[in-house]
Design a protein around this nucleic acid. Structure first.
Lengths: 143, 143
DNA sequence: TATTGTTATACTCTATAACTATA
DNA sequence: TATAGTTATAGAGTATAACAATA
């Protein structure tokens, strides 16, 4: 293993903070907060059959999701409809407007990302992005 | 830019959390917390001429550094000695024991990191690590 | 007056456990 | 009884401003 480099964890942490900072203006322009965007983004994969399922998708617990869902539902960006088969469940789905907002956010975010990766050569960039995506996906499946 | 992948920021965030979780047992075995380790690690580069300088090195503000320094100094892992040239300043430096602790932590952390990267092939791994380190360094220089 | 280190205070975020309604 | 969603509360973490000592 390499000797003369910084810790991976520290590097991830720094980059996380930097990205949050850089993306905040984009999100603010769309009047959403970070976790709002995370929720909308997760719902693009498809409606969530329960809020708990959505919570694990996003990587938060269900209690912290509720104020976010309240806000987004009030703005008409998503809907919570009771599941007739089991009325305890509420299926959460994007509205057309919600889909439009998340797409608008994503456009801005892609610009910020391109900026971060600008100095890399194309080969490095594609390896980096692909590995990053794979690692993040691997790490996803455990809460 | 690629279309079908997750956001970089979300990936960084997930990996940050996963690494914190995976490294916690290592740090606990050495009786240090995450930011304790960050401070000790930063001091390996050399003594900090002022606490403020150390704060920016670590990426926190000076007020949040103080309880950490108190604790580490009490344990004899670092020293705070007034600078004779400007007695407002305190230069912060690792003790021999502090250096031993941070090295012990690092050994464990390297193992965790190797585990994360284990499935990658060597080429990918070296590109990924090198790019990550470079990006983190670039992003470092803005308080 | 400006700066270093420090303390105090208010604010946000997070974790936990209790409550309701359905099953 | 067990689970989904919700609410409440306590704790940790964070940001900000004020303070004493030194320049």
């Amino acid at each position: 293993m390499d000797e003369q480099r910084h810790d991976l964890g520290a590097a991830f942490g720094r980059l996380t903070r930097a990205m949050i900072e850089a993306e905040t203006p984009v999100l603010r322009a769309n009047e959403v907060e970070m976790w709002d965007y995370a929720v909308l983004s997760a719902l693009e994969e498809g409606p969530a059959p329960t809020q708990s399922e959505l919570a694990t998708r996003v990587g938060r617990d269900k209690t912290r999701l509720i104020p976010i869902l309240d806000r987004l539902e009030a703005r008409g960006l998503l809907g919570r409809t009771p599941d007739p088969a089991d009325r305890r469940n509420r299926v959460v789905a994007l509205t057309a407007e919600g889909r439009a907002v998340v797409r608008s956010c994503r456009r801005g975010i892609r610009t910020v990302e391109a900026d971060l990766l600008a100095e890399l050569d194309p080969g490095e960039r594609s390896v980096f992005v692909s590995v990053l995506d794979r690692l993040a996906e691997r790490v996803r499946h455990r809460p």
